[in-house]
Design a binder for these strands. Structure first.
Length: 419
RNA sequence: GCCCGGGUAGUGUAGCCUGGCAACAUAUGGGACUGUGGAUCCUCUGUGGCGGGUUCAAAUCCCGCCUCGGGCCCCA
């Protein structure tokens, strides 16, 4: 017996039905926002990912050397590949460029619920604009995608990294000091942040201002506390985004959260995340923001914002919320009563299939009773019984599997009745 | 990578503490009701994650590994 590799999954037809359905809903939402689908390879050069995230991520990558000696890696995410694609081939496309994608990604992590070594992401990037309306539209789309997919309990947090970094520079914190603070901010350990700031010789008042800003979700309060032109200007932008979300997109269910940091290295400006609180440790469904990667990849700098949605987690959240996925059904199950009927039955089956009807036929030469039972267990809507009695009159028996009602119908009329 | 809890037919479970023939339900295949279902009955197949140790004897006790789950770490 062979075992499935750790952290990977097989999907049953029931699960695939759910996944395809949700993927379609997401895809439609992307399309209604004017986004176009792209696809990139499953593996890339290792360098693409180390350039973006540093050598430290090699530990969490599925990387390998191919037979030509090239260092490659299975993609751990899709932003870097898509931006590589953009820099390589799409720079002259009319702006803004709105791209979306679905793809499996691979990370060498310890698996647990909602975290797999092979997982699927849905995401997008908008290239060439960073107006408040562009950012608001993007955040709204992320929210709507999850809402349209049917997730009920969503928490949308929005922050802005430029405000944080301008405060950092105002307090003259060194890069190392910032590096020390960021993980603590990420973990909401604000007392430790305060203590650290004091250790860095920040005045008590300034330290409390910073920790206040990090903790409050009251934008007025932040307005009163924030200092410096850059931070004030960014705050104004943030305010515009929030106002668009509320007034234009009807999304009121958001919270300011200045402690979203998301690896400050290449994220700039607005950042956001959407959580499904019911999911526990791995509850983040979506993360995104504005970032600067194009220049790093050798392209002409232009604003970019994007997000990624954890597809598997979205499915998990829906299942937890007892979301009712559509049931897989079969339009017709054909039952030949005797072996002599098989040829005619296959022909009728095939005729219906050519008309686009979902039809299956008994292939085990089972009796009527077992066949009907089987038809019922696979959720067939109708059964067509084909036997000598019926054929004498050029007819078949059509049985409605829900009501149990059945009628003798002419073969030439089957198509009409089924449709 | 760390801490904790699990792993018994395809699925869901009992037995484990206190070692002694591996079992129940369900699903699947076949059959009965001789052409009408969700039923009933009969029947076949199928089970201890893997390896080692203790013992006359291990699903049961001990150790290691694998794996799933909860919590960390990480979260691009």
């Amino acid at each position: 017996m062979f075992k499935i590799p750790r952290g990977t999954r097989d999907f049953t037809s029931e699960e695939m039905q759910k996944r395809r359905y949700i993927e379609e809903v997401m895809q439609k939402t992307f399309e209604t926002f004017g986004y176009k689908e792209v696809q990139t390879p499953t593996f890339e050069t290792l360098e693409l990912f180390t350039a973006k995230s540093g050598d430290a991520i090699i530990e969490e990558l599925y990387s390998f050397t191919d037979k030509g000696g090239r260092d490659l890696a299975l993609r751990p995410e899709l932003t870097a590949p898509v931006i590589r694609f953009y820099v390589d081939k799409l720079q002259m496309e009319p702006k803004p460029l709105k791209l979306y994608y679905f793809g499996n990604c691979y990370r060498y992590d310890r698996p647990q619920k909602g975290r797999y070594r092979e997982f699927k992401q849905a995401g997008c990037e908008i290239i060439g604009t960073d107006t408040a309306e562009a950012n608001a539209e993007l955040i709204a789309m992320a929210y709507k995608i999850l809402e349209n997919a049917g997730v009920k309990n969503l928490v949308l947090n929005i922050g802005n990294l430029n405000i944080l970094s301008s405060l950092f520079s105002q307090f003259k914190l060194t890069k190392d000091q910032q590096k020390y603070l960021i993980p603590q901010i990420d973990k909401s350990m604000f007392e430790d942040v305060f203590d650290a700031l004091r250790d860095f010789d920040i005045k008590k008042e300034d330290a409390s201002i910073l920790t206040e800003i990090l903790q409050t979700s009251d934008i007025k309060k932040i307005e009163n506390l924030v200092m410096g032109d850059v931070a004030k200007k960014e705050l104004e932008e943030l305010n515009k985004i929030l106002s668009f979300l509320d007034k234009s997109f009807g999304i009121k269910n958001y919270q300011i959260k200045m402690s979203i940091v998301r690896g400050l290295d290449y994220y700039k400006g607005v950042v956001f995340e959407i959580e499904a609180p019911s999911l526990g440790a791995e509850k983040q469904l979506c993360g995104g923001g504005t970032y600067e990667l194009i220049k790093l990849f050798g392209g002409k700098e232009t604003p970019t914002t994007g997000f990624a949605i954890g597809f598997d987690r979205t499915i998990l959240a829906l299942e937890l919320e007892k979301y009712e996925f559509p049931n897989p059904t079969l339009d017709v199950f054909v039952i030949p009563v005797t072996e002599e009927m098989i040829e005619k039955s296959l022909k009728i089956t095939q005729n219906l299939r050519e008309k686009g009807v979902k039809v299956d036929i008994d292939l085990l030469r089972r009796g009527m009773s077992k066949s009907l039972k089987y038809a019922s267990s696979i959720n067939a809507k109708k059964a067509i019984i084909i036997g000598p009695k019926e054929l004498e009159q050029d007819s078949v028996t059509i049985r409605d599997m829900e009501t149990g009602k059945q009628d003798l119908k002419k073969i030439k009329d089957i198509e009409k009745i089924i449709k």
